[in-house]
Amino acid sequence: MGKGSLIIVGTGILTPAHLSQESISRIKGADVIHALVPDPLGLSTVSKLNNNVKNLGELYYDNDSAKNGNNRLESYNLMVEAIMCDVRDGLEVCAIFYGHPGVFVFPSHVAVQKAKDEGYEAIMLPAISAEDCLFADLGIDPGDIGCQAYEASQFVFYKHSINSSAAMILWQLGVVGDVTLTKLTPAENGVKMLQERLKQYYPADHLVTLYEASTLPIMPPRIEKVTLSQLDKAPIRTITTLFVPPLKDPILDLDFCKKWNIDTSHFH
């Protein structure tokens, strides 16, 4: 029995198209796979690469029973333990998550840290996230105007210094406002709270985009523009993301540029 190790990979959003060569190689070489993959195309692809697959979906929080803990966080911890059990048994473990395994994925980060803390080799490989798809589908280059991103509930509950001269992406609208970690839909007033918070920074007629990446090769992405005032009427689904374009141009700091002899005559 070898010394256990852990590698975390992501399927990307569209599997197998988004699966990297490096990830494929690591999946093939693992002793055991732990997969949390929401679509059968992804699961079928992974199973063809390595037939020793354990489905982490079976440990996902189930609102109808207490078998996987009392909330999502507890079920994520069960997943981490399932992964770590095989690592401790001396196996080369590959855990696979949807999208980028380190973006909006709690158990992957915890598993890597735990494995390292216990003296095992553990790494995470990058993959294509929904944000990557958004930039491509909406034709947004975050380098042009700057871009800030928040989880929707965090954006709602906390005071942030929002830069309305840059773009903003809000994630996980599908559970916005839920503090119980037991729901898979927005809280009763979740979208209303989001709307109110956004109106602190943007006018009611500001056009925002509801975005969902394509998850099947036959299907286009959802790109639906609505005004802020229409947001509470728009359908919000599990994978819906909100893109908020900048409201105004940034203000050039003339004093600073002058101090450092920056020629601003050609600046926009």
Binding site: P38, G57, Y60
Partner: peptide, 24 residues
């Protein structure tokens, strides 16, 4: 199609914000 394929994107929701990590 997604329904028949058995897609379950609920299980693609795998993060919690920092506040919940501390309190739960």
């Amino acid at each position: 199609i997604m329904k028949k394929l058995g897609c379950d994107y609920d299980i693609s929701r795998n993060s919690v914000i920092e506040a919940f990590k501390i309190k739960k």
